[in-house]
Design a binder for these strands. Sequence first.
DNA 1: ATTTTATTTTAGACTAATCTAAATATTATT
DNA 2: AATAATATTTAGATTAGTCTAAAATAAAAT
Lengths: 219, 219
Amino acid sequence: MFSPTEENYLKAIYLLTEKDSARAVATNELSAQMNTRAASVTDMLKRLADKRLIHYKKYKGVMLTTSGKSQALAIVRKHRLWEYFLVEKLKFQWDEVHAVAEELEHVKSEALIDKLDSYLNNPKFDPHGDPIPDRLGKLSASGFKNLTSLKVNEKGKVAAVIEQQPAFLKHLDKLHIHMSTPLKVIEHIAFDKSMTISINQTATVNISHEVAKNILITK
Amino acid sequence: MFSPTEENYLKAIYLLTEKDSARAVATNELSAQMNTRAASVTDMLKRLADKRLIHYKKYKGVMLTTSGKSQALAIVRKHRLWEYFLVEKLKFQWDEVHAVAEELEHVKSEALIDKLDSYLNNPKFDPHGDPIPDRLGKLSASGFKNLTSLKVNEKGKVAAVIEQQPAFLKHLDKLHIHMSTPLKVIEHIAFDKSMTISINQTATVNISHEVAKNILITK
DNA sequence: ATTTTATTTTAGACTAATCTAAATATTATT
DNA sequence: AATAATATTTAGATTAGTCTAAAATAAAAT
């Protein structure tokens, strides 16, 4: 159907607009996300536009068509299901699974993914808290808040993380912050936007804005 | 490390010489196995020879080097472990798994395969009865006999099948011949080399030489 | 409203893997 | 041993995906 490279471009466009699917993605944004040169992106955008997977106007950036979005969701579904499998069944750490899932997501078999989904009991969120689209591309609405938006004394549990680099995830491990860990805001430091929080009612630490903005919270 | 295509050529050479690793594989044999033209095979053989994965003399065919063989065994290991996973855990039929495993075998992660191996409790044979190499490339010796070599009244159980095309496997399903099914030879028909056998002490049927030679038997 | 800077696109080239058609080797047959 | 048939290799082309360098466009700054 589509090559792994085409799939990766579609996925990248989707992920860059996951929060705001109306906006256009710039060529340079994509080249950064894909680790390629802008010229290569332009080449690929022409091909994807020919296949009616994206809306593309020269110099104006790119958006997914309905068909492109449903393709992208299918790939994201595969990626997140495999991540869930790797952590739940094969006992990988949550910071180790991304690279492997990048490869597994391109294996082409509807039956494989549907059977994997059943085998895992149709999980709704992957190990990083990201929603897993169902066969039809539907996402469970999360209603998560960003940690930075909580007021002093507000509490919540870790529901998801945005950044998924191993370096970031290992940092959270060191702080004993995991999925479902209870957090409470002690203080916002205006000077550097950092926050003091209590973790699991035991430790109290200061975390940078950079870290806080990558943590999503639920009740 | 190696491209999926390079891996496929190594695997093909290995499988063609699994019974007799001393013999050379001809270009045309490989082109048939890989569904490509002989000219493409020649191109690839030059590349594999440059990488010291095969011994190659123009017009004289090809053999794996020690390094090529250990690469090939690693790929065969992945293929057969994934087949086992697909049948045992995801409940695929044994005739459905080959194509999917062809893709999964190229996913590059030592950790993935080792963890999968443990998760499956280090199986020694795949769903078709073929031995699964261990991490070091070692195979469990099977000592299976070909069904065609059994004498009248000799008994045994199905231990493996050679041909793995869905059409063949479905034919066996129809005859209720599966892994471990007890068989007994009733008669050899000299005229067409077919055999009459009893299956599971219930049915008695005649099977062609073509079918019989693809079934391996153990006690 | 120009000019400068940044972004994006085009032009042309490269590699891996494939193909067809033609040339060359090997093997089999008379 | 010469010839015919088969197998293999070479030559040259093609496609996907990438690159660098240069040209074109858009956005920002004066």
